[in-house]
Design a protein around this nucleic acid. Structure first.
Lengths: 153, 153
DNA sequence: CTCGACAAGTGGACGAGATCGACCAGACGA
DNA sequence: TCGTCTGGTCGATCTCGTCCACTTGTCGAG
């Protein structure tokens, strides 16, 4: 992971469909060597994939909410995690240091869907309590910050 | 936005670098017409961009935290928002219904960076209090849920 | 019913990009 | 000094992206 790799990663975060030829021009190499570097970045797990960014509202997911989970003492975290993973509406799941030991980011089309979702999460064994906060607006999301300085490979 | 558009969106969310030719094969159209559809999806704001997914730890952003902001009564939200936007470490910013009216997701290399960041956010005029939670692990993040049913265009 | 307009696809042509193998240069250790 | 390894270039070839002309189907107006 040298400076050129960082530039490539930054370019691909800005536009994930940039062609190898274009990347090559930007970093001053040829297309095959850039392709080689990108392949290595993918294999080593630094680049984990590519995705199109979608306006959630435009595809009918107009409601975003954050759900905090307070577990009970007997909670089997591995089990909770698997059950959460099975719920497609949960887009992100963080394990936190605090009383609310999980936070979920969920997206649903309608309020009714959110209500059902909360009940479903609350019914998972080991979940003592949930606390839901509706997001009124998403100011921004998943903004890529440039890859920083010195990195171990 | 018909069924074919939905398939295209789902395919591009799964792999944002899928070629038009490949998309065309998957949906049973020719490449030019798929390209035409994708262009329209981009212009209409449904697809807002493409990005490479990066393992944050691998690029030196080993620490993720959630910061809640409690504003004071005199808070100028537009100003707060702009000042938050100027901080690159804030990857996401949600405006919430609740006492904590913003939640930030931030990523930094080291604890010291997080401390500085918290001070910087706390110093913004209109911010009465902040509450930071460290994430111990990210179970998953930004998992695309398939585009659902009936959609207005 | 016919006509024209429009939206959405198709097919072909051509330039650009992706990809592969062969080759090259510098770094490094035996 | 000599292999060997890494990371690069170059050129050939195949695929892809993109433009344009043409076709088809739908629909409302006359």
């Amino acid at each position: 992971m040298d400076e050129i790799d960082q530039t490539i990663v930054n370019l691909l975060r800005t536009d994930g469909r940039t062609s190898y030829a274009e990347l090559a021009r930007r970093v001053g190499l040829t297309a095959p060597s850039v392709q080689d570097r990108v392949t290595k970045l993918e294999k080593s797990g630094i680049i984990t994939g590519y995705t199109a960014l979608i306006d959630a509202e435009a595809i009918g997911l107009g409601i975003t909410a954050l759900i905090g989970i307070i577990p009970d003492n007997a909670a089997d975290h591995h089990d909770i995690c698997e059950r959460l993973r099975a719920i497609p509406q949960i887009e992100s799941c963080y394990f936190l240091a605090g009383v609310e030991c999980y936070q979920l980011k969920v997206r649903v089309p309608k309020m009714g869907d959110l209500e059902r979702l909360i009940h479903r999460v609350g019914a998972i064994p080991g979940v003592a309590q949930t606390r839901t906060t509706i997001t009124l607006s998403t100011k921004w999301e998943d903004r890529p910050q440039p890859v920083p300085f010195e990195l171990a490979d």
